[in-house]
Design a protein around this nucleic acid. Structure first.
Lengths: 176, 176
DNA sequence: CATATCATGTAAGAGGTTACATGATTAC
DNA sequence: GTAATCATGTAACCTCTTACATGATATG
């Protein structure tokens, strides 16, 4: 009888990173920000909480405290099994929540001039993100095909968004 | 001194819908599912809670209970002001959380055959969503430019996603 | 009269964010 | 020695989901 600890995607990702060796909470935050931060948000608080919970559940073990109270967590066999089960289950349905489209839906309640500003600001943020992604893609080239694929998704998304922006009719954008 | 009640996007959307006249919680759920359901999830529980909270804050007023205990909520001037302030602030940053890209990031831990299956399943779900969007777009044509624009975003997103799927290299998809 | 649908809500818990509190070590 | 950064964690609160509980009305 295996005690099935159901993983949430955040916890599962931590286990995923621990496959490359023990890490402290602090390090895991940095790793996660770097490797999945562009498509999965997570906070320090969350990481420490999930680590504590997974330690209780036997999915990870806390090692000795090192300098500066550093406390490395290592994957257990149970943790490895739980991670594999999570991965094998496939990605859950995406929760699509796009604040921009809410603002747009209620666009008729926003004066045209302000609407134009708001949209332009948002478009700009997207454009900056696309630029950042493209730079990242250069750095990443040839290293990790999976990471490259994930980044390519982001690029495709932002490109599509910008094209959408530029195709909006003037009665929506509020520009004359 | 105006008591600034800070709205979350869900609450704000309810106020937005109440601009077209009083509605009950039940009706608001249906309206929201229909009008913003494709880019903003929300549950019954949430709607009743937000209505109660906004009623306490004076942003809406509960009317007399009708048949089947139906209780219509109406917008107050404070509610209208709060909504306008929310709308004017512009859309907040999108929280990007794409479970698919997590699965992909850890793709090397998933056997190639299973990886191919998982990706194919997910691609299929996306394709179905795109089809649904396209049908909706036909129905919507010429009615509401803002709703059409929001839908066009969804279509652009799904089209970009499908194109990305189809451009994935075989070492990522796990197909030979 | 039985079943489906309409309609309200509460309870419990998971997940997520922000702010607070504390202290060690490194770099200047 | 002082400021930055590393490192751990707790507390409070908000948001969101799922399950539970209850009853009225319409449809067949």
């Amino acid at each position: 009888m295996t005690s099935e600890h159901v993983l949430n995607p955040t916890a599962a990702s931590l286990l995923g990173f621990l496959h490359d060796g023990p890490q402290t909470g602090w390090d895991l935050v940095a790793t996660a920000r770097l490797r999945i931060g562009d498509f999965w948000t997570l906070t320090r608080s969350q990481v420490y909480r999930e680590l504590a919970a997974m330690s209780d559940a036997g999915l990870v073990t806390a090692g000795e405290r090192g300098p500066r109270d550093r406390r490395p967590y290592a994957l257990t066999d149970a943790g490895r099994a739980a991670f594999e089960a999570w991965l094998d289950a496939g990605p859950g349905d995406e929760t699509i929540r796009v604040p921009l489209l809410l603002t747009l839906t209620f666009g008729r309640h926003l004066p045209a001039a302000r609407r134009a500003e708001v949209l332009a600001e948002h478009r700009d943020r997207r454009a900056q993100r696309l630029t950042r992604y493209r730079n990242l893609a250069e750095d990443l080239e040839g290293s990790d095909a999976f990471a490259e694929a994930a980044l390519a998704f982001g690029i495709a998304y932002e490109e599509a968004t910008l094209a959408w922006f530029d195709a909006l009719p003037p009665e929506v954008t509020g520009e004359r």
